[in-house]
Simulated assay, not measured.
Amino acid sequence: MTITRFAPLSRLWPCLALLFGLALLTGCAHDEGNETFPKADYSYLPPLNLNVSQITITSQIQPNYDDLTARSPNNPESDLQLMARQRLHTTGTSGSAQFIVTQIEMTKLSHHSFSGTYGVKLTLDDPTHQRHGFITARVHRTIEAPGSYSLERDLHTLNTALMDDMNVELEYQVRNHLASWLTDATGTPLNATTVQSQDLSSTELPALEGSAQQHAPLNTTAPAAPHPTSTTYESTTPTKLHSPPPGVLSLPQH
């Protein structure tokens, strides 16, 4: 007769705990690998209409194997170029613009601390009208990431923050240093002012530019006087002063 002895349950707990831990780690790694992130979109931001006929978008970034750019779920170089395509619009008939990505860096400072730096350059050239201009925009950001997040999520958070900063910085630089190149959606310069002349002897207002509608002649009849309700009106007619009758004035007594 064979007697089978089973190991006590207490001896099995370490093995069960090890198997459970391995399964948990495998599940976490599987979840991180399937983690998805939203794609970048800057089309909802106000466009920057430039008085040029074409825009070229290029990059001068050299591979840097010491940073973490390649691990970012959203490619920073692609996001910067997408920002240029969606925000910089052409409204002119001559001239050209060149948008250049000049710097992209992502580094890990400590276990949960990351920093990044983005830089771009925008040059404008219109030989026909002998106009030239350029601006540079550079942003830097440091974040402290929760320890429970994956590296990809931390880099996505850093990239999102840097792109938000770059959109603000680019618009600020363009509006403050390239204002003469900005137009509205129809191509009219934003800093242009239209001055119209009018014959002062005419009783008609000039028609608005681009409109065929004429204004009615000015009413040269003086308006009727308002009814005296609760409003107080002051008279502008000078009041005549009369001398007092004799005996009214007296000298002061000492």
Rank of each mutant, 00 (worst) to 15 (best):
L16R: 11
T220L: 15
P245N: 11
Q103L: 05
N167D: 06
S243W: 11
F114I: 08
L151T: 15
E105T: 14
H129T: 13
T220K: 08
A222V: 14
N219A: 13
S148D: 11
L22H: 07
N64R: 09
P47V: 09
D41I: 10
L155A: 01
N167T: 14
H156E: 06
L18K: 06
H129F: 13
C15N: 13
S113I: 11
P246D: 12
Y42A: 06
K39W: 03
T160V: 10
T107V: 14
Y65G: 03
T183F: 01
G119E: 01
Q213A: 12
L218Q: 05
T142R: 11
T136L: 03
R5T: 15
G116I: 05
L122E: 00
L218E: 06
L182F: 03
P245M: 11
M163Y: 04
S113F: 05
G247V: 09
D199T: 09
L170A: 04
Q196R: 12
T236G: 10
I100R: 01
E171C: 05
T56N: 13
T91F: 01
L12Q: 13
P46K: 07
L205W: 08
N75P: 00
T186R: 09
P238I: 13
Q103A: 03
L80G: 03
P206K: 05
L241R: 12
E209H: 06
F6D: 09
H111V: 14
I143Y: 04
T232Q: 06
P206R: 05
L50Y: 00
L155M: 06
V174Y: 02
L109H: 10
P38H: 04
A70S: 10
N64E: 08
E209K: 11
Y118P: 00
T183L: 01
L218T: 07
R141N: 12
L82R: 07
P73Q: 01
L124G: 02
